[in-house]
């Protein structure tokens, strides 16, 4: 079939790959955006992503008898969010202790989270769990590439809805304003009688829950299985993605599409027979992230949109 389409298969494969591959980026970057708006960096989302992927898969497998193969994966998504939130509590509490560096806590949480995921996930590598069912809007065509390009996961739609919702939340609600105030100037927020600790804790917990859902999309939708290599660093790239998106949820959505698309470059080219640089093309998202950071960062000025207190030490 690929031969019949020839080179036209490449853009279609990239489109399909973008829809599939952008979902984890979307959720993790929205989660990271929410967290960073409150003035803290959460590098540990990579660990959350893995724990989310594992717990979603495990729950979907274990509950398929009771809930059926449609609801079981959704139960998995819910548990993944809760698992993410649990890791978020550790991150949120620890990174707000005096003299504790949030980046270092993030690295520790990557190790801890992946340890938890691999520890409890070991028995679930073999079994097959029911996966999330996608909307197949391409069934009118008899070309499998077109069908694949129009297959949309409900999680993608959820994420696409969440992005403008979060933007509205930041700009138009009292809670959004509180988070931004804490992120820009914790001293001022404290003077207003806001509990900086609570706001940051809740932002980190909610952000981690979103990252957990991103993990669920990895194991329950695409690639759609659980193993120790399921994440390819989406949790880390999200941090760079948020910088690229200038801490704007809607731009996070566009950036996720870009990153998801770049991820599908290698497989798309492989499908038309270009596979001698397969591994290098697979590094495209990382190279892209790095290039974007080199182009957008500057040693003199801060990027517009940067929360004022981001990366600053905890004030005791």
């Amino acid at each position: 079939m690929t031969q019949a389409l020839g080179w036209w298969g490449v853009p279609l494969a990239i489109a399909a790959g973008t829809l599939r591959g952008s979902i984890p980026f979307l959720f993790v970057s929205l989660g990271e955006c929410l967290t960073e708006k409150s003035g803290k960096i959460n590098l540990g989302l990579e660990g959350v992503l893995l724990t989310g992927a594992m717990s979603a898969y495990a729950v979907s497998y274990l509950t398929q008898e009771q809930l059926g193969s449609f609801f079981a994966p959704w139960c998995g998504v819910l548990v993944a969010a809760l698992a993410g939130m649990a890791l978020g509590i550790i991150q949120g509490w620890l990174c707000q202790q005096p003299r504790v560096n949030d980046v270092a806590v993030g690295i520790a949480m990557i190790i801890f989270g992946s340890g938890i995921a691999f520890f409890f996930g070991k028995p679930f590598i073999q079994p097959v769990a029911p996966r999330l069912i996608a909307f197949e809007w391409g069934n009118w065509s008899n070309l499998p590439q077109v069908q694949a390009a129009l297959k949309v996961s409900p999680l993608f739609l959820l994420g696409a809805l969440l992005a403008p919702l979060m933007q509205w939340f930041f700009t138009a609600t009292r809670w959004g304003l509180l988070i931004r105030a804490v992120g820009d100037s914790p001293q001022a927020a404290r003077a207003m009688g806001i509990s900086v600790f609570k706001v940051r804790m809740l932002s980190i917990m909610a952000g981690s829950a979103l990252a957990g859902i991103g993990g669920a999309s990895l194991s329950l939708y695409y690639p759609g299985s659980w193993n120790e290599l399921i994440s390819s660093g989406q949790g880390l790239m999200a941090v760079a993605l948020v910088i690229f998106a200038h801490w704007n949820p809607i731009q996070c959505f566009y950036a996720s599409l870009l990153f998801g698309g770049s991820q599908s470059l290698g497989p798309a080219l492989q499908s038309v027979g270009i596979d001698s640089y397969y591994y290098l093309f697979n590094a495209a998202p990382y190279i892209l992230t790095l290039l974007i950071m080199i182009l957008t960062c500057s040693p003199k000025t801060t990027i517009p949109g940067t929360p004022g207190a981001l990366g600053k030490d905890n004030t005791p």
Binding site: I90, V105, A108, M109, G115, F118
Partner: peptide
């Protein structure tokens, strides 16, 4: 992965 969990715990406690 037990070893990984242990490393993570040590790291978190040391940071605290």
């Amino acid at each position: 992965a037990t070893v990984l969990v242990f490393q993570g715990l040590v790291f978190l406690v040391v940071l605290f």
